[in-house]
Write a protein that binds this DNA or RNA. Structure first.
Lengths: 318, 318
DNA sequence: CTGAAAGCGCTAACAC
DNA sequence: GTGTTAGCGCTTTCAG
């Protein structure tokens, strides 16, 4: 068995309450005892049992993270940034992936609650989060619309769409396909698409639309894309995310068909590995930081009222 | 507060012990009471408090995962596969990233222990894991050498290196650079390099060697690579991992310099996004599955003795 | 400033 | 078959 607070107390010749106090830096303790306890902890290599701490319902010092998948650089970077930032608050992280299934998402939520997280950062729908399910947990959402007063940290998708569309016009394209990386028409994609349309409609470009399902395995996606592109009639294809854009590029190369393909998200690894991709960058690191800050603030000051929405600028790459 | 076992007991008109029994499916219970309890749980939407369960030291039903970074498709896929597979055992996962720092790795280990994980899957060094630190926890390691009887699941790096080298010879290259993606010369890279050398040395090819540090930020890596390649004297560059190979390709393109560049790892996303990359594939999914199976077996049967090493074949891509 | 003791939600003897 | 009860390791009143 691991060393417990009791043994530390014995070693330091104090009560467990005192040990607890120095661990949590609460209440007044003479610096003598504090030192004695610290030495004992070091000597015995004591590590608090987080489960026991969680049992009190407070101070679990862990935040739950819900993301669709790590196999998308947007989300793996997001997670990375979130984790790094939470660590500076001495919070740890419990990760759940949903693969965009509503079912799994509910399970994630339950799992996180079962694990007594103090708050949740979600980049999934959360639409279903009625006040019952969500039980007063502090929650912040990444880039998704949510109903009931869950703050959303997003970037300006409407403008992002406009930026891309303008870029397309600059390049004198005349038949563009808007390809959504998700069939279910999430808010964020809608906004991006709305932005694109607002520009395209004011020009004399013709527009096609299509969507592929986010959760499909890659092979399936490639097949779908090939089918969609089989007519080869577009001279530009605007995707609502980078991964879709990269897959489209693959298929096009195979077909020896070379339209202009644009992406969206602009994660670091996509930008370095595909430096020529025209895309829109969301400031992932800043968004991650803000989400953490809001959440921690909300946890520490339960009456802290956040804004409903925080929006970051979206910037054109290439 | 969330609903507890007590309230379920009251609702079902039984004792908490009975409720606990039906939750854990232990001991004999009449099917009547079982039903009553199940109904009560459903009605109240009861979810067990995992922290409380962990407090008993057993059945935390969580496994700790230590990986260097998620910003490498090898590891994000590995994690994904591990998580999926552990879920089938009804285990959850606690993820720690080390960015290959030994310091952070030790912290991860402590963190996981603090969280009462039942076992650990690590893809980091683990060399430092003396029997003290590691405290009898079941541990299995991904592709790294470990000292003391921690089973290692790896793929045949020696042969992988040979395969790549043979491929290079087939293409009549005559001056190759072996570029290690890590400066510290981990075992696995050594083996890969050893394999390459065993083939190259038997031919009349000239060989250069270089290494860049795994933990560097991408920009730094690019700069290092540029420096290494500034002589432009190689007609083939064999990297010990795919990410390094991709970065090399980027730099080469910039320099308008076109040697053959090979990678190693062959994760799914690299294979789909860079279908022409010559690389060696490790069967990540199978390795993940095996690691989970070994670990769970070891947890369930403490006297289960695993082999010291499980090796999977490495296969050439392209 | 420090200690005693109650209790967090749950499991596991041990009774009946 | 089911209930009683003693903890698991820790935090937190409440006394002193």
């Amino acid at each position: 068995m691991r060393v417990t607070i009791k043994e530390v107390a014995t070693e330091a010749q104090v009560s467990i309450a005192t040990v607890s106090r120095v661990i949590n830096d609460k209440g007044y303790i003479s610096s003598k005892t504090r030192n004695r306890v610290n030495n004992a902890m070091r000597k015995l290599n004591y590590k608090p049992n987080i489960a026991a701490r969680k049992l009190h319902g407070k101070q679990s010092k862990t935040i739950g993270i819900i993301i669709p998948t790590l196999n998308n650089p947007l989300f793996s970077e997001l997670f990375d940034d979130i984790e790094k930032h939470l660590n500076t608050y001495e919070y740890q992280t419990l990760l759940c992936t949903t693969n965009n299934s509503l079912e799994k998402e509910k399970q994630c939520f339950e799992l996180l609650k079962s694990n007594q997280v103090e708050g949740i950062i979600t980049s999934s729908h959360t639409d279903f989060l009625d006040n019952h399910t969500f039980d007063g947990y502090p929650v912040v959402s990444f880039d998704r619309i949510t109903s009931n007063r869950i703050p959303v940290v997003k970037s300006d998708n409407l403008n992002g769409g406009r930026i891309i569309a303008k870029r397309i016009l600059e390049m004198n394209k005349s038949y563009v396909l808007i390809l959504s990386g998700t069939k279910d028409g999430f808010y964020k994609n809608d906004e991006r698409i709305k932005g694109m349309l607002s520009i395209f409609r004011a020009s004399d470009i013709s527009i096609g639309k299509a969507a592929i399902s986010f959760a499909s395995p890659t092979n399936r996606k490639l097949a779908l894309i090939e089918q969609i592109l089989s007519g080869k009639k577009y001279d530009a294809i605007c995707c609502t995310d980078d991964v879709t854009a990269l897959l489209v590029n693959l298929v096009c190369t195979d077909m020896n068909y070379h339209p202009l393909v644009t992406g969206y998200d602009g994660s670091k690894s996509v930008r370095t590995l595909f430096p020529n991709l025209i895309t829109v960058k969301q400031p992932i690191d800043q968004m991650a930081k803000l989400m953490c800050d809001i959440l921690i603030k909300r946890i520490q000051y339960p009456y802290f009222i956040s804004k409903d929405e925080y929006s970051f600028p979206a910037t054109l790459i290439n």
